[in-house]
Design a protein around this nucleic acid. Structure first.
Lengths: 340, 340
DNA sequence: TAATTTGCTTTAATCGTTTAAAGTAATTAA
DNA sequence: TTAATTACTTTAAACGATTAAAGCAAATTA
């Protein structure tokens, strides 16, 4: 069944395609189209069930009304949350989102950017992977509007919406300290990603400000190379320490899940034997026997800020906007006051 | 920075756009392009970093090389799994997937279909929602290639990839019976969705074939109207029964999660006090104290079959293909043998 | 030598829109 | 009565690719 196009309507009504285009794009008054003609056109479009060809429209206007989104891993709670809020805000502004997942692979990231750019998205929202710094710089030189979200490279000046990771980690650590914890281990990935290093720094600073002597073994760095992510090795190391730990602070939800699995296996009870605090939440926490205390990122706000920020860029703004939002500590039952 | 187009290359080399197009589309030999000219063109394209404009290409060829995918809820494990496998298979065939989530809302489903169709996707892969039967029939009349996945309407004859839900539920129930369970409750949504009703039927038939007398209270139907999904009400009803149940069989992963939360809260231990069997898995199961026995759908196979099936349709095949795959029962520790 | 074939290249229409510019009546002003 | 203005409407050139069809030398055949 052939699709109805502008020309069909024009012939049906007996006018030119220009008039039809004007009317259907709401320029009837501006272009002084005769009211009765305008009505005929509107009616014809409805009768024939006209659906404009976005492809042709895009070719002419050089606008696709599409935003490209690349997340790091679609399995992260962060990714689904941010995707949802971005889609919502985009729709409000009449944009469609098309997206892909880099699976934390810089090469795939770069390929995805290319695919999206070739499809002529009007702008990009990106969660860059480790090692994609060059790609970002390239993109910047190309002039395509984009904003980074969640992560950024301090050396690359570009629009960015993220979390104040230092503060969030600092506050979470302080929370544990206020509860009386003293031997607090921090489990993070071994990484060069700035936002994760900021979490280390927040953890360090909180310890320092509370005059707690940090020891090297307290920071456990999980190797995430071949997708291994074997937290249990690190936790085993921690458990070998002569003096037991009060609390485990995990730098991401995935680390927390794997950590909790290990604790389940080893029958170490939370929070009686050890307190647990997570960065980001996960659906998986729901079935743990205890609710988990975690630091929550304002996903909705991030997503909508990313979209509005990008739209400004697409409308020609040259202003650099870097926004850091605050996390909220949601307390569950996984951290227990320690008497000293 | 202006994008390089065919004409730029043509001028750069000093030939017509036609030649450039032929060479870059691999028709150099076919169109008998002079070998040295061809080389010049290839080199120029590389030098100028030519990226073809997909929009223009699509307008001319009437092909976008895009598949539209609509899932029911991006938070379902089923959805992410199927999305991933569809993307993978699509990429193999040089298609990009753009997708949306209907959130089980027929109206949103219909709008999404429209958006995708207007963007001139070449075909659609759909998980229809309750009440979208008309939309599917409309689509069918429009002639756009599409395949349904996971769910279908028996009254509407169209291509479909799904599960043999009757058999899967039958086998799961049989598994419980073989373990010695006799009082087996089945928790499903109150729904008109055919694939879920098939699960009821599988459950019934297994009981009947084993001469177990079904009682009305055994089938708990969860109201999912205002996104409520309050399984605990249903489980409370079950627990009121004079004779306790051996086993709980949940018709979806979401139901299982909510059920397990209730059991956690009520301190009913799995599998000692009651066995639990789930349809579909969830990341959330990972942190439950016991591994969950569940019926696994072959998501990878479903996704890739959906894509290859759709591609056949897009290539003009008129053949009706309805495929039902088999589930695999993955046994965990949540079901325990009962002596009789 | 003229006609045909071969090898290579260009011309120009097309996809379905948008939109500046030009066209054409009818009306108003001079 | 003529010129200018108003109120519409059409024409046609884009956007960037694809691709029949036509064009044109040089080489081959008659």
């Amino acid at each position: 069944m052939k699709k109805v196009n502008l020309k069909d309507i024009a012939e049906y009504v007996g006018v030119s395609t220009a008039l039809v285009s004007y009317v259907l794009n709401g320029q009837a008054v501006e272009k002084q189209v005769n009211k009765s003609t305008a009505e005929l056109i509107t009616k014809a479009a409805l009768d024939l069930n006209y659906q404009p060809n976005q492809i042709a429209k895009s070719l002419k206007t050089q606008k696709t009304n599409t935003i490209g989104l690349i997340v790091a891993d679609i399995n992260f709670k962060f990714s689904t949350g941010i995707t949802r809020s971005i889609e919502e805000e985009a729709k409000k502004n009449n944009y469609t989102v098309i997206y892909g997942s880099s699976n934390e692979n810089a090469e795939k990231f770069s390929k995805l950017v290319n695919v999206l750019v070739n499809r002529r998205v009007d702008g990009l929202i990106l969660v860059p992977t480790e090692g994609s710094e060059n790609e970002i710089e390239l993109l910047q030189r190309s002039g395509i509007p984009f904003v980074l979200i969640d992560r950024h490279f301090p050396a690359v000046q570009c629009n960015y919406i993220g979390l104040d990771n230092h503060k969030a980690a600092y506050n979470a650590t302080q929370y544990l300290i206020d509860q009386g914890h003293r031997r607090i281990a921090f489990v993070n990935y071994r990484t060069t990603l700035f936002h994760l290093l900021e979490r280390n720094r927040g953890y360090f600073d909180a310890l320092k400000d509370n005059k707690i002597q940090f020891e090297q073994s307290w920071l456990q760095q999980v190797d995430n190379s071949a997708g291994h992510n074997d937290v249990s090795l690190n936790l085993k190391d921690l458990m070998k320490e002569p003096e037991p730990f009060d609390a485990l602070f995990f730098a991401t939800d995935t680390l927390t899940i794997n950590g909790l699995k290990y604790l389940n296996k080893e029958k170490i009870s939370v929070p009686d034997q050890i307190s647990v605090l997570s960065f980001d939440e996960s659906d998986a926490f729901d079935l743990f026997y205890t609710t988990i205390t975690f630091s929550r990122q304002p996903l909705m706000e991030m997503g909508s800020l990313a979209v509005t920020n990008l739209i400004e860029l697409m409308n020609g703004s040259k202003q650099l906007k870097q926004i850091s939002l605050e996390a909220e500590l949601v307390s569950g039952a996984s951290c227990k006051e320690r008497l000293r």
